[in-house]
Design a protein around this nucleic acid. Structure first.
Lengths: 355, 355
DNA sequence: GTGAAAGCGCTAACAC
DNA sequence: GTGTTAGCGCTTTCAC
C-alpha cells in the first residue's frame, strides 16, 4: 500500500514532508467536484466563468500545482525530453568541454520555449544505446544525444528500433538516424584555406578522426590542401581526443617531436589552447612561428591569449534545430539530417595578414 | 478519452510512434499475470525463481522498461530532482559561466550515483521562487538552485513554505534555507593576502557585492587589507556583474579610469580574463604591472595566458554535498548550511614571488 | 507461488 | 453547468 495520506501536519517521520495538495482538496474547499476543478484549471469553456475564476484563485492562493505524473499517465502524454551527454568511462573524464555545455544550454532554452522539460544525463560513450532507456521507460518522449562518438552503429540500431532520436553531429554515409550539426567539411576547409592563404604550408591537424565530426573536418582539411597543391602528410596528423586530461600529454609530445609545421587546425578550442601551450613550451611562438586555429568558438575564445581564430559553430541555433527535428519526428515527419553553415572567426592566433 | 491503443504497426498518423510495451504484454507472452510480472521484475522472493528468470529474460529481449510515471504514481515516490540555474532576464544573458556549468555536471554525477534523475531548467534571477513549481507539480522531489543572486528573501520564503531546497551559495545572517558553498570569506582573504605578501599595496576588487557570495568575498578582502594595515579604498571596488556581455564594458572603463592599482581580486575567472584583457588594452602588463587573481579555478584557468592564479572552488565535491543536503532534508534531517574549504591555486597571473 | 482487485491523481466521456 | 464513473500502467494487499 502506498503510505497512508498523512493528515496535514502529522508527523510521519519526515518533518519537511508537507502533504502535497491535490484536486480533491481544492474541490472540497471550493464546494465543487474534482471534475469541475479539473475543467476549471484547464480553462474549459464548459465550466461557469465565475466558478472557474474562483477555483483558479483558490488554487493559486494555496500554491496548488497539478500533479503532472497523474496527468501524463491519464493523457498518455509527456512533455519531457532527455538530453544525453556521453562521457568517456575509460579515462573517467567528464565532459567539461565548454562547447558541449553551451549546446546543452541552447537546448534547454529551446525546450523551455516550447513548453518541454529537459532531463539531463550522461551515458558511457561506449554504450550510447543505453540512452534509449529514457524513452523505453516513458520518462521522456525522445532523446537528444550530444555527439556521435565512435558508435555510429549503435545510433543506427536505435533509429531502426524507431526510437525518437536526434544526434548532434555530422552527416555520415548510410545514416539511419537524424543528425543536426555544423558543416564539418566546410569548417575544416575554411580553417585550412585560411592558413594557406596567409602563407602557411606545413599544416598539422589535431583531432581524433575516429569520431565522425572530426573525420569530416579532416576531409575538408585534406581537400583544402589538395586545392592548393600541398601534399597531405600523415606525420602532421595527431589523433588527440577531446578530453584535456588525456590530450595534454599527447599534444605536448607531438609538438616536441614535430617541429616542422607552421600552422595547426585543431578540432576544438580547448585543443587549440593546449596546443598553444605546448608550442610555447618548446619555444615556438603563436602566431609568429605557428598559426593555430581552433574549433567551436566557445564563449571564452575571445579572451584567451592570443584570442583564438576559430571555426564558429552555430550554438545558439543548434538547440532550436535539434528540438525541432525531434518534435518533427514525433509528429511523424520524415526529416533527414541537417547541416548548418559555419564560418571562420578571425582573431589573433591565426591573423588575417600573412606572416 | 486517451487515444485508443493502436495495435502494433498501425498507422495512427505518426510513423515513428511505436506503441510502448507494457506489463500486460509481457504477461501475455509469458503466460502469467501482470502481478507476477511486476513481482518478477522487482526481484520479489515471492515468485518462483524459474518464472522470475523467464520473465526477466523476456522483458530484456523485448527492450521493455517499466513505465516510471505509473510506478511513481502508484508508489507515491519520485526520484527526480530539479536543478535550476538562474539567468539574467534583463540582459538576456544566459548563464554560460563555466563554473556554473561545472557545478551542474558535478550534481548530475552525484544524482546519477544515487539513482536520481535530474531535471535541468532555468529561472529568471528576479523570480527564484518560481523554482518551487517543480516541487509543487510533483515533477521533482526537491530543488537545487545554483546561486542566491539578489533574492535571499525569496529563498527564505521558499524554505518557510517547507519546500525541499538546497542552494549553492554563501551562508548569510538569518538564513532559513540550506546553503552549500565554498568559504567565500576565506577565498577573499586568501587572494588578497597573497597579493599583499607579494608586494602589492593598491588592490582592486571586482565583483557585485549585492550578491551574497561576492559580499562575503569582499568581507574577506577588506579583512585581509585591515590585517596588513592597508586602507580600504572604495574607488578600487568595481561592481561588475558575472555576465561577460555586460561586464566587458564596465571593466574596460574601470581599467581606463583607475590606473593606480597593482593587484586585482576578481570574483570569477571570466572576470579575471576580462580584466587582463582590459589592462593590456591600456598598456599595462599582467602580472608585471598588475597581478590578477581569479575565482573558481575553472577547467580552462590553467590554459589561459597567463595561466590564472585563482581561488579553487570544490566543484567535484559540491555536487555530492548539495545532493546529500537535499536528500537529508527529505529524510527529515535538520541540516544547516555547509561551508566548504577553498584554497588558492598559484599560477602566473599572480605569481608566488614578489614582483 | 500466483491471480484478482483496488487505487495512486488525474481527465473525459456520459449522465443529469 | 456539474457530478459520476471509468481507466491511464503500475504495485500490493488479499484470496486461493
Amino acid at each position: 500500500m502506498p503510505k497512508s495520506k498523512a493528515s496535514p501536519g502529522s508527523a510521519d517521520g519526515s518533518a519537511s514532508e508537507q502533504r502535497r495538495l491535490q484536486m480533491v482538496d481544492i474541490a472540497r474547499l471550493a464546494g465543487v467536484s474534482v471534475s469541475t476543478v479539473s475543467r476549471a484549471l484547464n480553462g474549459s469553456e464548459l465550466v461557469n466563468a465565475e466558478t472557474r475564476q474562483r477555483v483558479a484563485e483558490l488554487a493559486r492562493s494555496l500554491n496548488y500545482s497539478i500533479n503532472f505524473g497523474a496527468r501524463n499517465l491519464r493523457l498518455q502524454e509527456n512533455k519531457t525530453v532527455a538530453v544525453v551527454v556521453p562521457f568517456d568511462a575509460k579515462s573517467r573524464q567528464h565532459i567539461s568541454d565548454p562547447f558541449f555545455l553551451s549546446i546543452v544550454g541552447s537546448i534547454a532554452d529551446a525546450l523551455t520555449d516550447r513548453g518541454y522539460d529537459m532531463l539531463l544525463s550522461r551515458v558511457d560513450a561506449e554504450h550510447l544505446d543505453l540512452a534509449s532507456h529514457w524513452f523505453d521507460s516513458g520518462k521522456a518522449i525522445g532523446v537528444v544525444l550530444i555527439g556521435q562518438w565512435r558508435h555510429h552503429d549503435q545510433l543506427n540500431e536505435m533509429a531502426a528500433r524507431k526510437l525518437p532520436l536526434v544526434v548532434w553531429g555530422g552527416e555520415m554515409p548510410q545514416q539511419l538516424y537524424c543528425s543536426v550539426g555544423g558543416d564539418n567539411v566546410l569548417g575544416g576547409t575554411l580553417a585550412t584555406r585560411h592558413l594557406l592563404q596567409t602563407g602557411r604550408r606545413r599544416i598539422a591537424f589535431v583531432g581524433d578522426a575516429h569520431l565522425p565530426e572530426v573525420w569530416l573536418r579532416r576531409q575538408g582539411y585534406a581537400q583544402a590542401l589538395r586545392e592548393a597543391g600541398v601534399p597531405v602528410d600523415p606525420a602532421l596528423e595527431l589523433a588527440a581526443p577531446f578530453e584535456p586530461g588525456v590530450a595534454t600529454g599527447v599534444v605536448r609530445e607531438f609538438c616536441a617531436a614535430q617541429q616542422g609545421f607552421d600552422g595547426v587546425v585543431c578540432c576544438s578550442d580547448v585543443l587549440a589552447l593546449l596546443t598553444i601551450q605546448a608550442l610555447r613550451g618548446v619555444g615556438r611562438s603563436v602566431p609568429g612561428d605557428v598559426a593555430v586555429i581552433g574549433y567551436d568558438d566557445m564563449p571564452l575564445a575571445a579572451y584567451c591569449e592570443p584570442p583564438l581564430t576559430t571555426v564558429h559553430q552555430p550554438v545558439a541555433e543548434a538547440g532550436a534545430e535539434l528540438v525541432e527535428a525531434l518534435l518533427g519526428q514525433l509528429r511523424g515527419e520524415r526529416a533527414g539530417p541537417r547541416t548548418m553553415p559555419v564560418h571562420l572567426t578571425l582573431r589573433d592566433s591565426a591573423p588575417a595578414t600573412a606572416s
